[in-house]
């Protein structure tokens, strides 16, 4: 009795490009199986064709192409933008660090823009100026009696009295 092949076996044969010699020989000799195999193949093709995406217009392809190129452009722009941002951030950090460091050096150290010799000279000059000022004050104390100032003018009699009392007591030897 001749063995006929079922749809499933023929389907496997069609998909797998089977090298099953027995099946191939049988299909070649058996009209019924040959017809069924042709029907299976044809149906697979038909199903595939029917299930394919409908034909697209040129507008669709152009839009898709533009979308791809736009996405690439955006990506490129972003890729360029990242280093710029990093550079900007680095610049900000540098400026802030430099500013803080500058403030610290001003408050804790002498101005390094002048040479050490100039600094010493400057310090010496300042010291001389202070001494001169102190001397000046001393001179003023001698030359100008604060009791004789305008503010203390009204108390001149009191001052004179105190001076008189002091002189009188010195005379009597109590001071």
């Amino acid at each position: 009795m001749t063995k006929h092949y079922g749809t499933g076996e023929l389907l496997t044969h069609a998909y797998m490009s089977s090298e099953d010699a027995e099946l191939s020989r049988h299909v070649a000799e058996c009209d019924a199986c040959g017809r069924r195999l042709a029907a299976v193949r044809s149906e697979l093709e038909r199903h595939a064709a029917n299930e394919m995406s409908p034909e697209k217009s040129e507008t669709f392809w152009k839009r898709q192409e533009l979308a791809v190129m736009r996405a690439i452009e955006t990506r490129n722009r972003r890729a360029l933008g990242i280093p710029t941002q990093i550079a900007a951030a680095a610049a900000v950090v540098f400026v802030v660090t430099a500013f803080l460091a500058g403030r610290g050096s001003v408050s804790s150290a002498p101005d390094m823009t002048t040479s050490p010799t100039a600094t010493v000279a400057s310090v010496e000059t300042n010291a001389t100026a202070v001494a001169t000022q102190e001397n000046g004050l001393t001179t003023r104390q001698i030359t100008t009696d604060p009791w004789q100032s305008e503010q203390l003018e009204d108390f001149q009699n009191v001052v004179d009295w105190e001076s008189w009392v002091e002189a009188d007591e010195k005379k009597r030897g109590t001071i």
Binding site: M52, S53, W61, E65, V68, M69, I72, E73
Partner: peptide, 21 residues
């Protein structure tokens, strides 16, 4: 980038068809 645009227009149909499949 014009070079890549040509590559897109050359292969987009095949890639789309296969992706849809």
């Amino acid at each position: 980038q014009a070079g890549f645009a040509l590559l897109v227009s050359k292969y987009q149909r095949r890639i789309y068809r296969m992706a849809f499949a």
